[in-house]
């Protein structure tokens, strides 16, 4: 991608954030006025462990330029080990992205706690930049 293209390209990024830690961390980013690119659309889930790989693969094959699942740090899960389940599934998702011809950088699993507002903003900023560098999803029509 040319640098001009990178600037023009506004990726659509989805963040699936668990209610107890990451969604709260995203809220804290707001409360602390940490700025990050406006490309991220957050979808609240109760636990990162409730996200079916289908949802991620579907999103990425239907035009999302990037998807990030955010969960509690290991040990912090409100439901004991949902985040660890999510971690296992994320490995599977990453592997399968190859099968779908999608760059694995388009998907990420990240831990964000309720007190990590700035970290959430940083994560979103970096992820957006990463996606911008990659350019539009191969599935974007």
């Amino acid at each position: 991608m040319s640098s001009a293209g990178e600037q023009d390209f506004e990726p659509v990024i989805l963040a699936l954030a668990c209610n107890w830690c990451s969604y709260a961390g995203a809220d804290l980013a707001g409360i602390s006025r940490c700025q990050y690119p406006a490309n991220v659309r957050i979808i609240r889930v109760m636990c990162s462990g409730m996200v079916h790989p289908n949802l991620v693969i579907d999103a990425l094959t239907k035009g999302a330029d990037g998807v990030v699942i955010c969960g509690c740090h290991p040990g912090d899960c409100h439901y004991q080990e949902g985040n660890l389940k999510a971690e296992r599934r994320a490995e599977a998702i990453t592997l399968m992205l190859q099968d779908f011809g999608i760059e694995e950088e388009r998907f990420k699993l990240a831990w964000v706690s309720a007190s990590e507002g700035p970290q959430f903003a940083k994560l979103m900023t970096e992820f957006t930049e990463q996606i911008k560098r990659l350019g539009p999803s191969p599935y974007r029509s």
């Binding site: 790989p53 289908n54 693969i57 599934r89 592997l95």
Partner: peptide, 25 residues
């Protein structure tokens, strides 16, 4: 439905290392 996605999801949840699965697709 995509059996690969569905099965990989289910198998990784029960603790199977997804890399163990040969020739996924």
């Amino acid at each position: 439905a995509n059996p690969m996605v569905d099965m990989m999801g289910a198998l990784s949840t029960i603790g199977l290392d997804p890399k163990q699965i040969p020739d996924r697709a």
